[in-house]
Design a protein around this nucleic acid. Structure first.
Lengths: 193, 193
DNA sequence: GCCTTAACTTGACGTTGACAAGATATGGGT
DNA sequence: ACCCATATCTTGTCAACGTCAAGTTAAGGC
């Protein structure tokens, strides 16, 4: 065996340092660069520069990794909705701005958006539960500011259904091409208040 | 080579007869009996009693088979909505009944419902396009009977978004447990007219 | 400075989708 | 009635995947 020159080849980190987070970030990159089909445990491991079985110690199954990636998606999602509705003049405009931001996020980040709502990601992850709860709270607050605090949750569920349904149907191309999506979007946003 | 007795072992159907449809039916069975994870090409082939590569001739890829299964789902779906809203006293009640049937179908047939709207099923299948179009037309007619024929498609898209979003959020357990789903459903159905 | 233990590697197994090459039945043309 | 082109199915193979098991290396408490 030839001895490779001990140049700056980095001290062969047997221990990665923070492989867990690195795998999640690698997963997010793969997701937006190559789509959901390429998002495998082994691909994440490769991208993070570790062996194929290294993730095992941090994620018992692929599904667990997917859940963490989805959670990180929800975190960005909440931030985007916050930012997108920050300087709205009033509660109604704010809710509407959130709706627009929601749909914009779904279209700009299709892959992770679909993952966030995919049936196969398990909901046991603490981080996922926390970030989903944050998203829900964000919505409930905005809805309460418009509709008052009676029946808030039912109203929030209705609003979410409306916007989420539209996002899903459009991103998965389920609406016929004859439908003017901008028209539909406007018609839809009228029903938020 | 020993000659196996030519008993009633069924004339060794080298040719299946209608393998294509058999595979679709097998897929639907597997889907509801074992879930989406078990729905593989090879599993369908096994259930249909053919070799693992037999499907190749009828479906170039798994995705193509999934599309046909989804299409058969849409056919049942349209029938269910038709039946569920058949004897409604008026257009408004009919639209509301369709909404209820939609959500009922989603909950009673979660697996195939999710497949029908899954992003990974390609939309090129003629049968899928046809059955999806049928579902859309069904909705448009019902909406037009309530709202008139101006802006029908935008309104139909809004209605579909609302009901579909709710179905998705509930079947994938995205709504917090604090939400009373029956309340939310009623609040939601009020917005159909 | 040892030594338990967490983190990572290597190697393996069964399953999957897909491809290739061979076997077999079907049916139209004569 | 026969033949043969062709559609259909089988067998065998491949790489890639998720997961498990066993061995190797580094870290940190004592």
């Amino acid at each position: 065996m030839l001895e490779l020159p001990m140049t700056k080849t980095r001290p062969k980190n047997y221990h990665h340092g923070d492989l867990r987070e690195a795998l999640i970030k690698a997963g997010r990159l793969i997701l937006e660069e190559q789509g959901i089909a390429a998002l495998t445990l082994r691909a994440c491991a490769r991208k993070a520069g570790v062996s194929h079985a290294a993730p095992q110690h941090h994620f018992a199954t692929v599904a667990e990794l997917l859940a963490e990636i989805a959670a990180s998606g929800f975190e960005d999602f909440v931030a985007a909705l916050d930012k997108g509705s920050a300087n709205a003049p009033g509660p109604r405009e704010r809710l509407k701005a959130m709706g627009r931001s929601y749909i914009a996020f779904a279209h700009a980040n299709t892959a992770i958006y679909k993952l966030m709502f995919a049936a196969e990601v398990p909901l046991k992850s603490e981080r996922l539960q926390f970030s989903m709860k944050a998203a829900w709270n964000q919505l409930v607050v905005a809805v309460a500011a418009v509709h008052g605090s009676e029946n808030v949750e039912a109203t929030a569920a209705r609003v979410w259904s409306l916007v989420h349904g539209f996002s899903m149907l459009t991103t998965t191309r389920r609406l016929p091409p004859t439908v003017d999506q901008d028209d539909a979007l406007e018609a839809l946003l009228q029903q938020l208040d």
